[in-house]
């Protein structure tokens, strides 16, 4: 929650100095760097730690549900039974394409092409909505197949990791739509392209997080994880007893 709120804050609250911005969108600074863009990069660096912690959690519990299942103790569906790789590949494709439309939106406003800006921003938001629709459908389908949030340690970690990614995407969509509305009301001039650039940085970050999640959660197989006994043998060898 902290992250989500912080994101919103930075998204919209980041422009305190900028009424200098009525004249130039890039207030000069000691470093020559735009303060708001610097803020966004710092936030993204920090968000690496946020998703890093979540991903560490996922990696730690990854495969545990499968092992419990093999040991006959597990409850509910386990990853290899339920994850749908072709379906999620399409989601991943959609999100990658949204990164393209985002960067085209930025290129448009930098050229002063306001119509292009709105079209590409709208397309980005729409692709984001498709992605979220996909996630919603996926979650619902899992739920109907018996995998709820609390079913097993796989479902705990899966829903929380992908859910927080989804929350980031949702905030991004709201931000993009806000930008479209501002642009329609004439509030986004060519020299204010930084507003789009910062939103874009956030959006691309959400995309790269999905690149990691897609590989870690969906593609790396669960069935050839080392079994506990094998791991124990490794450990014995590691400490010089095997």
């Amino acid at each position: 929650m902290a992250q989500a709120v912080a994101t919103l804050e930075h998204a919209h609250g980041a422009g305190d100095i900028p009424h200098a911005a009525d004249h130039a969108d890039h207030p000069p600074s000691s470093t020559g760097l735009d303060s708001r863009k610097l803020l966004m990069w710092l936030f993204l660096a920090s968000d690496c730690m946020f998703f890093g912690s979540l991903i560490a959690m996922y990696m730690i519990y990854r495969g545990d549900a499968e092992r419990m299942f093999l040991a006959g103790q597990g409850a509910g569906p386990v990853p290899h039974e339920i994850l749908d790789i072709p379906y999620t590949s399409i989601s991943a494709f959609v999100l990658l394409m949204s990164s393209l439309t985002m960067v085209l939106a930025l290129a448009s406003i930098q050229r002063g092409n306001h119509r292009g800006l709105r079209i590409w921003l709208g397309a980005t938001a729409a692709l984001g909505l498709v992605f979220m629709g996909g996630q919603f459908y996926e979650f619902t389908a899992f739920y109907h197949e018996g995998l709820g949030l609390t079913t097993n340690i796989f479902s705990n970690s899966f829903f929380v990791l992908t859910g927080f990614h989804g929350a980031h995407v949702t905030i991004g969509i709201i931000w993009l739509i806000s930008l479209v509305i501002v642009s329609l009301r004439g509030g986004l001039r060519q020299d204010q392209a930084m507003n789009v650039e910062i939103a874009g940085l956030y959006w691309h970050f959400v995309d790269i997080v999905w690149i990691v999640i897609f590989t870690l959660v969906y593609l790396i197989p669960y069935d050839d994880v080392t079994t506990i006994t094998e791991g124990a043998e490794h450990a014995l060898r590691f400490i010089g007893l095997g």
């Binding site: 929650m1 902290a2 992250q3 710092l42 660096a45 920090s46 968000d47 730690m49 946020f50 890093g52 912690s53 979540l54 959690m57 519990y61 949030l149 609390t150 340690i153 705990n156 970690s157 929380v160 927080f164």
Partner: peptide
Amino acid sequence: IIFAFPAITVALLLLSFDRYAGTGF
């Protein structure tokens, strides 16, 4: 602070899910 706080944010979020939603992190 920028780099350390996300870890406790996540730790507390997982605890919140355990306490509010019945997960078992």
